[in-house]
Design a binder for these strands. Sequence first.
DNA 1: AGCTGTGGCAGGGAGG
DNA 2: CCTCCCTGCCAC
Length: 789
Amino acid sequence: MDVVLIGQNQTPGIVAVQQVGEQTIRWYRREDGKLSTTEVEFFPFFFLADDALLEGFPRRHWLKELAGSNFYRYLAAFTRWHDMWEAVRHVINAINMTSSRRISSYSETDLLHLRPDPLVQYLLQSGVTLFKGMSFDQLRRLQISFHALSHRNRPSDARKSEDRIVAIGLSDSEGWKRTLDGRKLREPEMLAELMHSIRERDPDVIEGHGLSHHILPYLVRRCELHNLELTIGRNESPIKSFSPRGGTGERDLESAFFDVAGRHVVDTYQLAQTYDFSKRSFESLSLRHLAAHFGFTVPDTLQLNREQISTLWHQEPTAVLELAQYEAVLTEQLSRHLSPSYFYITQMCPLPYGTVCRSGSAVKIESLLLREYIRQKHSVPKPQVGVQTSGGYTDIFMTGIASNVLHADIESLYPSVMLSRGIKPGTDELGVFQVLLKELTTRRLDAKRAMQNSDDEQRRHSLDALQSSLKILINSFYGYLGYARGLFNDYARADEVTTSGQELLRTTIKQLELYNALVIEVDTDGLFFSPPDNVRGEEAEDLFVEKMGAALPEGIRLAPAGRYKKMLSYKKKNYALLDYRDRVTIRGSALISRSLERFAKVFLQLCIHKLLQEDIEGLHTLYVSLRKDIMEHRWNVLDFARTETLHDSIDVYEREVESGKRKPSAAYEVAKRSGLPVRVGDRVTYYVTGNHANVKIVENSRLGEEWDPNFPDENTAYYLERLEEAAHKFEIFFEAEDFKKIFSSDDLFGFRPEGIKIINRYKGSFTEQLPPEEERGEFGIWLDEDDRT
DNA sequence: AGCTGTGGCAGGGAGG
DNA sequence: CCTCCCTGCCAC
């Protein structure tokens, strides 16, 4: 008999529940320090545990401290009620309210062939309407896309007191129904109209681009200002905000999540961010860039920037309203591309659609595990305390420029390792982990096959969404093992996965070197190498990769992942590639990073292009002309300013600096000195002033917009030093004297590129026996005398 | 209540 | 000058 329990902090009064029969449970209540019991009829379920009160009860695992897991979702409603049937009714109401009148998690085609959860069975018997087998398009009919324009994105904007909603556009699949039509409404009326139209349309889903970072915080704030509540819930309840990192810290709406009773809040900006995280294909996450990326048509008349909008609003408000409408259309189109995969996950995971959209993979995996444990009425483990001690293997064997480079990777390394070695959490007594992993992998391969065999564009798109969302989920099973809050975490198993992965990568390196390939750089599951001379052409290359993969165990596959004309290898995780269509890809934080000033980033980029073309003269010209531009202030503040995000409020920052917990930071100091109101999440652009290269930046920096091109006061010495630092990265590609010649303006005798060669440095091969450590320089026996210290 | 992992590079401040 | 520590950003 399983013991089922309730946590005391959630349930004043009720301390424990014991299942005493198939449909009977026993309540334990604390009254005046004594325990009383009541038996009630119930459907099978689990509850949270309270250690101290369970002495002597049979149990396998405590269900303790579960507040923090998704398990809680099932239980939250129960624990607030003392009367069981009242509680059940409450759950039904809660589900009705928070899950959009449906439990979309349960579809007719139950992905994992699991019987519906007891809760769902019970609800069905109780006559609650469940929308089963609903398609994505059916869902969308109940959806509303939403866009509000406001000026509140930068600290400087806060100075203009005209921040207000300038337009609200509402759209659904029937087209535009309602927009503020230019009537002069005061803000409270405008807000009331917005709330009214949401209630009237009663959407299940509210979408917007930047919904949770800009639009909703803005609306909530404006409502507060007028003593209104943003009541857009199904039950007329106000929107609720909460901190995604737990705790009740200070309220900052910009980083909050929002719950609207009975509706799902979906932010297309967040969806795009997640999409970009895995594919890295967006240059910007603005609606306009994303629209261009997906090939939506954007009329020229609507290509306006924020300042123009502000002006236009005063002159021709209808044009702005058109823009707002169009942005809502773009949001809707964007969502059509990005949200289907989340919808499919919702059909598997016992989580509402909106939650699936905003939560990470670990939450989804855990919800699947819990789903089966609950179905089998089995108790659930506590998270393990500990740390993971290993990760992927990364190494570099050559720096310089290599020609004819192949990229190969071990396909789905970690999932494959887990499947082939049968790795699962030690606490997973029911063995659900492996079953899930296998099933999801099979499903994904099926979807991929079906996609390739389908002629229907629409169907291919939805199958692709399905398989790519499964891929992300599958890849996260490893991460879940090392997740500190995961109920089924297991650090030893996480280590086993990574060390097995390391072994496989090392095996592959040895195999490649055995066949005379030159291995350049490896990282976790991928390898860059030059194949031996007798391997030429794509066909031969693929065959070669296949042959190399033959050394790997059953179930582990080495696959071609790209072929390149040239590769510039700089450091671990830092390289550039030139493909056969002459496109350049740059990777790594040392070569390309948002934190670099624009001039340095562009300089590095152009240098890398020149290096890949082995254009030495071009390098020199680049350096000399940029140096001259800097000295003559021939640039814009955005070329040399740095932009940083303020992650904490000024108050928190000052407190932590005072207590020595953190060091002074230029971005915060600049914000303080400027006297502008600053909020968490704001980005501050600043540049360095002063007259020598070693100034303290914290004390010598100004807000970017204070820079005046007519009286440029940027610290030229400092920025010239920054240029030197950027150029310095290329030192390892040349002989010392050559490097000095290229990156110098001292052209007394004219610059002559003749005789200058790019140097490749080898760190010895992986397999060969290296001389003892002390006889080697950083890059081994191939180092020049000069470089050995 | 809500939160996937490790490895690597660079830059800046503090203190020697 | 140097090292140490922290943060931010990035690769996988």
